[in-house]
Design a protein around this nucleic acid. Structure first.
Length: 594
RNA sequence: GGGGGUGUAGCUCAACUGGUUAGAGUACCAGACUGUCGAUCUGGAAGUUGCGGGUUCGAGUCCCGUCACCCUCGCCA
């Protein structure tokens, strides 16, 4: 070892010991005769002192600059009482240096690594390794590692078998766009990177593994968001001879342990359950943030006879009027109220009507359109009280539902109700089997085509498929979907029905999922499972808004890696090997691929 | 593909309605200083205002185009 201790471990009891430390020069304070150098490594920062009589060591140290890597030897000295630094764990001591060695010089850094100033995200990604020198950035990776360790321990305790599935897979398009890898030995053919190991884990169940798990990298070639990367990591698991509650119990136990050990929060189990229909009705979304109330109420009935053009127009067209009631302590200024329409404009909502509830007469632009009977009905429906405010959204259900969810979230943020230290988990259940594509009327699987229907809804598959419910469940934590799973179809006849309804005929099913359809013939245990987005889980536990923060080398919104320069052009010889020719290709103008 | 935001010294930022030589902190270079811990003090160097056009006597500022990054709608079974 080049060192005897780390930069974070020396305390008063080490006084007078001889030590050798290695690290980066975080700061230097040159007093002419006396020179202080703060030495940093992963574990902390230790102050080193060079007296003029340190001789050659002092001469070398004098030339050292920020972020050089050095090795110092000396003795630990207890600092005088009034010279100790209580803000630093090693602040009681300092190293009196008598040996100083430069291990590596450093150019001035292109990003800020110490202090409150943080360089732009763009530079941070370009020089990601320099960001790791910041403790808060390193902490994110440490949380990530801790999550992985807890997951691994837990799954092994429950006797799940860890199985690695291939990265080079068959393309089974449906849902997200695949990342493709051309085959050299099979001209014109391609592998796909897995969007998830879905079919493989079901096949493991058919193979009798009984309980499988894996930390699986997944790839989806779709546009990015703050909570979406083109490659991301899932905890993937599957169990045989189980029902919903069995899978959910495994996940609850895990999340409970994670929040306890990582965030110090004890989650009560079992978690709350809420049907998809209730979630959308009450929170305007299938991933409700239950850290705060502000439920959305449907007041269409209360206003069914309204003459007010905004309400009447929506209701006559078959739409709904939805209302959020604000308690008196959440009163909003006119300016804040005027800002609300912009919040819901994305969803196509025309505006947000509002009225102030006052015992001595309701106020606001909408008040005059409300009859006494309507006020009574609204009071009944929303439980509003004197001093409160009612916010209304009116329009088609497809607009008003998501808009009400956005509005509720906006209010939660605006009133500071989203406590980052709180964790509220809820299972959303009874998802519909299908979504109906508006333009064509075609059915698309809401979850995926291997999800089992609720038994009593099987007859509905033929008569009213759009209202058939799936045995699917999502785990929602603080308004974020952190896991989703289902009980799978284990009956090939049912699987055939689902394929047919999705417009996948036998030949196509054979072409795309042939290996899986064949496997369904040879004895399939009833099974189900779940996959959890570990990037989101880690970000959530560590209090980060973006999953980029808990990914060591994340990609930008345009799926580029600013550090390595990927993606980039490749040699013609490589393309030739792969039997790939480029058709349309803009001139190389990004300058990044020289 | 659409909408919004950002882009000025290595870094973080400033520059009113278009107007003199684009400033400050920090880092860097040189010097001073024996108890600092965001050390302090003196001096210096440092700019294609993302890029390309245009309007104007004059553009960091206005217009058009374009690139990068961030947020977002669509998309993400």
């Amino acid at each position: 070892m080049l060192r005897s201790h780390t930069c974070g471990e020396l305390r008063a009891e080490h006084a007078d010991e001889r030590v050798t430390l290695c690290g980066w020069v975080q700061n230097r304070r040159d007093h002419g005769g006396l020179l202080f150098i703060d030495l940093r490594d992963r574990y902390g920062v230790t102050q080193c002192v060079l007296d003029p009589d340190a001789g050659e060591a002092a001469e070398i140290a004098d030339r050292v600059r920020l972020e050089w890597v050095v090795r110092v030897s000396g003795s630990v000295r207890l600092r005088p009482e009034n010279k100790q630094n209580p803000d630093r764990e090693t602040g009681a001591v300092e190293i009196v240096v008598d040996g100083f060695e430069v291990l590596s010089r450093a150019d001035p850094l292109p990003v800020a690594v110490t202090g409150a100033e943080r360089s732009s995200e763009e530079l941070g990604l370009r020089y990601r390794y320099l960001e790791f020198r910041r403790p808060e950035v390193r902490r994110a990776l440490e949380v990530r590692a801790q999550v992985n360790r807890i997951v691994r321990d837990y799954m092994h305790e429950l006797e799940f078998v860890e199985v690695e599935t291939p990265i080079l897979m068959k393309s089974t398009p449906e849902g997200a766009r695949d990342y493709l890898v051309p085959s050299r030995v099979h001209p014109g053919e391609f592998y796909a990177l897995p969007q998830s190991p879905q079919l493989l884990k079901q096949i493991l169940m058919i193979g009798g593994l009984d309980r499988y798990w894996q930390i699986a990298r997944c790839f989806r070639d779709e546009d990015l968001r703050a909570d979406r990367q083109p490659e991301f990591t899932q905890l993937d698991l599957e169990m045989s001879f189980v029902e919903e509650e069995d899978v959910q119990a495994v996940m609850e136990g895990l999340l409970r342990r994670l929040t306890s050990e990582v965030a110090g929060v004890e989650l009560p189990t079992p978690f709350a359950r809420m049907s998809y229909a209730d979630a959308v009705e009450t929170y305007g979304t299938d991933k409700p943030d239950l850290r705060f109330g502000l439920p959305v109420r449907d007041v269409t009935d209360a206003l069914s006879a309204s003459a007010f053009v905004v309400f009447k127009g929506a209701i006559d067209a078959g739409g709904r009027v939805r209302c959020i009631a604000l308690a008196p302590e959440y009163s909003m200024s006119r300016k804040q109220l005027d800002a609300l329409p912009a919040v819901v404009a994305d969803r196509g909502a025309r505006g947000v009507a509002w009225v102030k509830v006052r015992a001595d007469g309701w106020a606001g632009p909408v008040a005059k359109h409300l009859t006494e009977a309507e006020r009574a009905a609204l009071t009944e429906a929303t439980a509003c009280v004197d001093g409160g405010t009612l916010l209304f959204l009116a329009g088609p259900r497809s607009v008003v539902e998501p808009a009400s969810g956005d509005l509720r979230l906006h209010l939660g943020k605006a009133f500071g109700l989203r406590d980052p230290a709180r964790f509220e988990a809820v299972w959303v259940t009874e998802f519909p089997m299908y979504e109906v594509v508006e333009e064509t009327g075609a059915l698309v699987a809401k979850h995926h085509p291997f999800t089992a229907p609720v038994a009593e809804d099987i007859p509905l598959l033929e008569t009213d498929p759009a209202s058939a419910r799936a045995r699917a469940y999502d785990l929602v934590l603080n308004g974020e979907e952190i896991a989703g799973g289902s009980i799978r179809i284990h009956d090939r006849a049912v699987q055939g029905t689902i394929f047919r309804q999705l417009g996948i005929d036998e030949a196509e099913a054979q072409e795309r999922f042939g290996f899986f359809v064949e496997a369904l013939r040879y004895g399939v245990p009833p099974h189900g499972g779940i996959a959890s987005g570990l990037d989101r889980v880690a970000a959530s536990l560590a209090g980060f808004e973006q999953i980029r923060d808990v990914i060591a080398f994340p990609k930008t919104t345009s799926a580029a890696d600013l550090m390595s320069g990927a993606p980039s052009r490749v040699d013609q010889a490589q393309l030739d090997d792969l039997h790939v020719s480029l058709t349309e290709c803009a001139p190389d103008d990004d300058g990044a691929s020289e």
